[in-house]
């Protein structure tokens, strides 16, 4: 019987091919200090974590930094991870927190904020199909709160409860942010 957690989000779906037991073994080894095991976990999850960071920050350089920081934090917090949730979900939470932390920091630093704000994600960079390029660009123009909720819920498939938990907002706020995002996207796409 598949782990119900794994079926809740698109982000977790490809992880099934790795094998839940294999991943648990890797997590245990990494928790015991196995750097190579942690590297294996990195190889399994890097694309999704980086993709998430890239969608949320809309900045390649920021996304790289966030990804590295997220994995470093995951390593230091690995002892706290219990198998009551999927490792990928736990990792995504760390990545989202990292992104939010960096954005908060950037907002305190006007120069960095401008760099992030001026950046528009290249659809080719994230590998979206030609027919999705407009949507990709439109998502990147969304305000932070709406973009984060939309990316987690609509792109990565997290429920509003999970999205709210990850972003540190109420489930209702997540719904409101996604609704706002859809309205703004509709406006942008119909104007284009």
């Amino acid at each position: 019987m598949p782990d119900p957690v794994l079926t809740q989000s698109r982000a977790e779906a490809p992880r099934m091919t790795v094998g839940l037991n294999d991943e648990r073994v890797l997590v245990k080894r990494a928790q015991a200090g196995g750097v190579r095991a942690f590297e294996a976990l990195y190889r399994i999850h890097i694309e999704r974590v980086y993709g998430l960071c890239l969608r949320m920050t809309a900045n390649k350089s920021e996304a790289e930094d966030c990804t590295q920081e997220a994995f470093i934090q995951a390593w230091t917090k690995l002892g706290l991870f219990r198998n009551d949730s999927a490792f990928g979900t736990w990792l995504h939470r760390i990545a989202v927190n990292t992104v939010l932390g960096r954005i908060r920091k950037s907002k305190r630093d006007r120069e960095q904020m401008m760099v992030v704000a001026d950046m528009v994600l290249d659809p080719e960079l994230v590998g979206d199909g030609e027919n999705l390029e407009d949507l990709t660009r439109a998502i990147d123009r969304l305000p932070d709160g709406a973009r984060h909720a939309f990316v987690l819920h609509a792109v990565y498939g997290y429920s509003h409860t999970e999205t709210g938990e990850m972003l540190g907002i109420a489930e209702g706020t997540s719904k409101a942010q996604v609704h706002r995002a859809r309205s703004l996207l509709a406006q942008q796409l119909t104007q284009a």
Partner: peptide, 20 residues
């Protein structure tokens, strides 16, 4: 349509450089 299209967006992106 937007939600359907969003669910088609790629969720995994290979970084241009090795971050490990």
């Amino acid at each position: 349509e937007i939600m359907a299209a969003a669910s088609q967006l790629s969720i995994g992106v290979v970084p241009e450089r090795d971050l490990w």
